[in-house]
Amino acid sequence: MNSMTLNKYQLIIMADDKQVVLERILQVTRYRGFLINGINAEVNTGNNVATITMSVSSERPISLLIDQINKLIDIKGVKVDNSEVQIKQHSA
């Protein structure tokens, strides 16, 4: 049995409320090896600013994902909620 330590993080993402900004974030998150555990997005509201709160988990450092999301053109900023939780998953 292999054990894999997953760290769980809560991200708060501020973005320009542009077309497909949510898709861009989801694509980067999956590609960079993070599981999305939950998401709350306020997009296409006409306010010009989109707010996305996303719970993710991965054995990779969160800085990897933050840097990649920050590279997206429409992103204004990414914050990590400090209440970091570690969960363990076991796989055969």
Binding site: Q19, V20, E23, R24, Q27, Y31, L72, I73
Partner: peptide, 14 residues
């Protein structure tokens, strides 16, 4: 193509 472009461009527009 806009959707397809997400993984292979720095940015894209429609």
């Amino acid at each position: 193509i806009f959707g397809l472009s997400l993984a292979c461009t720095k940015h894209s527009f429609q």
